[in-house]
Amino acid sequence: MVKKLTGLAALTLLLSACSTTSNTVGNTVDPVLTQSPRDLAMFTAENKQCYDRSTQPYSFVVDAHNHFRPFGGHAIPMHELDDYFRRLGVLFVNVYGIGQTLPVDSSCDYYLDCPDTLVIPSIKNDFRNASNYMEFPPDGLHLTLSMSFPNLAEPQWIKPQMQQLNQEYPDKFKWMGEVNLVKQALFKNGHKATPIEAIPQWADFMAKLREDKMPVAIHSDLGNDKEGENYKYLPLMDKVLELYPDNKIVWVHMGLSAELKNADPVKHIAVMKERLDRHPNLMLDISWRVIYDNYFIKPEVRALYVDFFNEYSTRILPGTDFVASRKKDFLVYAQEVEVTSRINLYLDDNAFRNIALGENYFRLMGLDQYRAPQICR
């Protein structure tokens, strides 16, 4: 337990230093406290240095789920986000847009603040992310551009728009997601569950993803806390997995959501294991602090998920699900990293290396130049 408490103290010190400053843009924090010693060289095949869990951060090195664009309003500039990542030692980041955006004339930054305001799929955020990426090439980071535009209910437009992005930015997009199969939080804003009849019509763009070896990250709620509805929408994801077994599919949040806060963890884990066993190309994303706040925070529940992650350690990806609204700053992101990384404290060394230190991500993405360091014995 010593290594865990030491790692926790190190990151707590970092966050304490952050909180001594006002929560506004422009304030700085002592770089000695906020600058992580981790760099890309530590994650190359040539690196011989082991990772000491007793002295080095337990926070993940990969944020596989980060929205660089908000639903509405202004975004944190990409070069500023890059600085956040470097300071926290988050070296590998998926650059998501937002699949559904608020109208340009809306005064809202977040869809929950504007019920009854339509959110509509748009490709504009993917273009903005690519343009910013080209203008501000990441220094000391590995960023992966993601196509976040698809409306899965209208699949006929997806492949042509993929081609449009690839024509404008050849060989730059390596991921698709987060795309919404069903997201109950958006129901008041005009979103509906994708009809199961539409899923067979995905064949063209899913074939293109296989050809380009691009994973697709799918938001697909399992259900909600109403009696008998915990797994209401499971047939949708099962249909996707049945029809596209050769695609690299990432099921974000393990199907959990703010609408499903009280699922029986034993049953939920059993459902996840069954899908992982049946579909070798499926992976789970454990991003979003909603999972920690409602599940991992409870010791007896956390222990069940730790056993699950240790057993299926090659099938899990970490992340924050941070949405980069200009109303947020470094402290907010640092807190999101800390909370969503706490589960790492309890993982065994093999799972910690695969999940927190990025081995799963490198393998999924075919990043042969990178490798997670071994854990010090």
Rank of each mutant, 00 (worst) to 15 (best):
P57T: 13
E259Q: 13
I343K: 05
P318D: 05
G228I: 13
A198I: 00
N281D: 09
G228L: 08
A203F: 03
H191S: 08
V337P: 06
S54M: 01
E80A: 11
V25H: 13
L181R: 01
P265C: 11
M365D: 05
N94R: 10
Y346C: 03
F296L: 14
A334I: 12
T340G: 05
S131T: 10
R289E: 12
N23L: 12
A217G: 02
E274L: 04
L5R: 02
A351M: 12
Y333P: 01
N189Q: 12
V216L: 13
T28K: 14
I316S: 09
Y51I: 10
M237N: 04
D82K: 10
L81N: 07
V179N: 06
Y233V: 00
I123L: 14
K4N: 11
S146D: 07
L40I: 13
R363W: 00
S122A: 13
L186F: 15
G358N: 09
V61K: 08
D52E: 10
K183E: 14
G190M: 03
Q164I: 03
E227K: 08
W251Y: 15
F187Y: 11
L347A: 10
H142L: 12
M162A: 06
R275Y: 00
R53N: 06
A198V: 01
F322S: 05
E154L: 08
L347Q: 10
Y346W: 03
D277G: 06
D264V: 13
V119C: 11
I158V: 15
C114T: 01
I120T: 15
G73V: 03
N132H: 07
P70F: 02
F330L: 15
P299M: 06
K261A: 04
C376I: 03
N344A: 10
K48M: 06
F330H: 09
F309W: 08
E211T: 11
S106I: 00
G99N: 14
Y244T: 09
K159M: 11
I375D: 07
R302F: 01
I120E: 11
Y370I: 05
Q374G: 06
K208Q: 13
L282W: 09
E178G: 04
D109V: 01
F92A: 11
N47W: 03
D105F: 01
V32A: 15
K159L: 15
P138F: 06
G140L: 04
Q201S: 09
R353K: 14
S36C: 04
F352H: 13
T194E: 02
F187M: 03
V240Q: 09
P121L: 01
M134R: 14
P115G: 09
P137S: 06
P115W: 08
M283P: 00
G177C: 09
L81A: 05
D63P: 04
Q56G: 07
L284H: 03
N350F: 02
P235E: 01
Y312L: 07
F322G: 03
N47K: 06
T144C: 10
L152H: 05
T44I: 02
V95Y: 02
V323T: 11
V337Y: 04
F296K: 00
R53W: 08
T24Q: 13
V301Q: 14
P115M: 07
V252Y: 01
R363H: 12
L33G: 02
R377P: 12
L143P: 00
L243S: 10
D171F: 09
Y169K: 05
V179T: 12
A263W: 10
A198K: 15
T340E: 10
R69I: 15
D285A: 04
T314S: 07
F330I: 13
I158Q: 11
